[in-house]
């Protein structure tokens, strides 16, 4: 117990060489992710490359087979589930419920890690919910039933719920899947405008290039590239990881990707 205290890594969530195996299969193979406070990190990679697994391990809902995830230098299991949930909020790919809830009810779920057993919601809880509703432009729809919302609106409510957790880190797993393009842009504008460190798994390379400060590209569970969108999104890397040809042009320092038709189509 008298060993020297570990050197703090700075106030942040950090994954160090995490490995996740399911039976014989290695889903994640020694990935390190260390977002700087306040930045938006995009996770890219084909389906099954390990993006979701990495996010779940970062959130602490899944344990790594090897490696560690630390919050302010402490391993997540030592921090404890509730304490982690007060710092790290998650928005899943899509959210379903059979329960009939209002928008406010859903957003108030974000206060659960802050609340004690038996005690009713406090003034702090109500203020956090109102702030989250306001910030996501949902203040006027607080009493609307969840089931009447569109897919894009539901994701917006989930982001409001995550904000009500008052996190320092926000993890989003392909939050724009199946949304109309207008909602995709709205949602990402909202996500990057928040004063938190954001890690976001994305499908769309152009959206990643537009909104992320840094990218981490996964393939078969391994990190194959990391850096700014301009450094990472090269025709070579896109060809190697996704197996398609693309042209990359620059709009300022942000790359824009145009996919090309197959040169020699079979048949």
């Amino acid at each position: 117990m008298s060993s020297p205290a570990p050197v703090p890594e700075g106030g942040r969530l950090r994954a160090e060489a995490v490995v996740r195996r399911i039976g014989e299969r290695t889903v994640l193979d020694g990935v390190t992710l260390d977002p700087r406070p306040g930045e938006t990190v995009g996770l890219l990679g084909p389906n099954g490359s390990g993006k979701s697994t990495l996010l779940r391990i970062l959130a602490g809902v899944l344990g790594p087979t090897a490696g560690t995830v630390t919050l302010d230098g402490d391993p997540l299991p030592r921090v404890g589930r509730r304490a982690v949930a007060r710092r790290v909020a998650v928005v899943q790919q899509n959210s379903h419920t059979q329960t009939e809830m209002t928008v406010r009810d859903v957003v108030a779920l974000g206060r659960i890690p802050h609340r004690r057993a038996w005690a009713p919601a406090t003034a702090d809880d109500r203020r956090a919910v109102d702030t989250a509703l306001g910030r996501t432009g949902l203040a006027g729809r607080a009493e609307q039933p969840w089931h009447t919302l569109s897919g894009g609106e539901r994701q917006r409510v989930q982001i409001a719920r995550a904000l009500a957790q008052e996190p320092s880190e926000l993890l989003l797993d392909e939050p724009t899947n199946h949304l109309d393009i207008q909602y995709q842009l709205d949602l990402l504008e909202l996500a990057v405008s928040l004063p938190v460190t954001t890690v976001i798994a994305l499908h769309d390379l152009n959206l990643a290039a537009m909104y992320c400060d840094r990218l981490l590209v996964l393939r078969d569970g391994r990190a194959v590239a990391e850096g700014t969108p301009g450094q990472v999104l090269t025709p070579e890397l896109i060809g190697e990881v996704y197996g398609v040809r693309a042209e990359v042009t620059f709009d300022g320092d942000r790359p824009a990707i145009r996919f090309l038709r197959r040169r020699d189509t079979p048949l």
Binding site: R56, S95, G110
Partner: peptide, 9 residues
């Protein structure tokens, strides 16, 4: 769901 519950602590 359970995963959402877990991420709420």
């Amino acid at each position: 769901g359970e995963e959402a519950a877990a991420s709420l602590g």
